[in-house]
Write a protein that binds this DNA or RNA. Structure first.
Lengths: 159, 159
DNA sequence: CGGAATTAGTTTCAAATGTAACTATTATGC
DNA sequence: GCATAATAGTTACATTTGAAACTAATTCCG
């Protein structure tokens, strides 16, 4: 093939290759991982992702108010309210109205809730380990530090 | 403080620190990025995330059948069907029944659809660039290769 | 003090989504 | 060739989700 001069590419329009597009890739990866994990505890314990996250937050930081939970797990107050309602109905979470400010109430896992939490945590950590097995320890650290920076940037861009 | 021998930690239970838990971190990052991007085109063009992804797939690979689209963007056929219905109603996508196999039909962007696509792509790429600005070029490559490996591993674990 | 604005949390209504059933068409196997 | 199974895509129903309105309690500030 002769090496002809190229015709000038008149303002060639940019193309978007979805499979290499960062927001898309993040979304697909996160969804796959989230669903896989959910499969682990949905069957045995019948929890939604939201409910499990609320339990995880309470298992680690209780007592928390509903808004505290929301901040911890990046979830709006409506979602938290609904998850808590479901968890209370099943006796997994207890609520005590704050005596000083009766608008808020502090939440904590009940005994049953703590027991369930203690059974799920190892499953979750085991899954995480299996996933991390794809990377060396140094690579894990790298990945986490890079994703931290992406996150910070995304927050900054959101205005 | 004297250097006393530690009491043996009797089977100390593992703790889950949500903020360092990989599935959780991926989910929060992906959600933030996805919402930010959606804000860019939702207002001016009134598209859902799904609709935009269908348009992106068709913009790059048309003609495609609905199931082709589904495979490309990792989305089940019901979601694709609904997104396509919405896009057709707005005249952004055209459908032609396959003469050889009348169950399937090939989809492509209409002229209007192509025009809209051409206006959104630069916005999306610009956002991606701003996000990537958090990383050096080498780091971008590293991040992408590591997330590819995590993705492959997650797929393998899903059985 | 006392009315306006804030805050915590819930409820309501509409839109989005998932699962399963359904239609139409094509492929398979006896 | 014909009954059965498989495939493409849509529709229906039930559940989830999100946005906005709402209730109740507290704070702010003239």
């Amino acid at each position: 093939m002769p090496n002809l001069p190229q015709a000038p590419k008149a303002a060639s329009r940019p193309t978007l290759e979805l499979e290499h597009f960062l927001p898309y890739r993040l979304s697909v990866l996160a969804q796959l991982v989230s669903e896989s994990l959910h499969d682990l505890y949905a069957g045995p314990f019948d929890l939604t992702v939201t409910q499990w996250r609320v339990m995880a937050a309470l298992g680690r930081f209780a007592p928390l108010t509903a808004s505290d939970v929301g901040h911890r797990i990046v979830m709006d107050k409506v979602a938290v309210s609904r998850a808590v309602a479901g968890l209370m109905k099943r006796g997994l979470v207890e609520r005590a109205t704050d005596r000083a400010d009766r608008r808020r109430s502090s939440l904590r896992l009940s005994t049953r809730g703590r027991a369930m939490h203690a059974r799920i945590v190892p499953l979750a950590l085991e899954y995480e380990q299996k996933l991390y097995a794809a990377l060396t320890p140094e690579e894990r650290q790298t990945f986490n530090s890079l994703s931290d920076r992406l996150f910070a940037r995304a927050e900054a861009l959101r205005l």
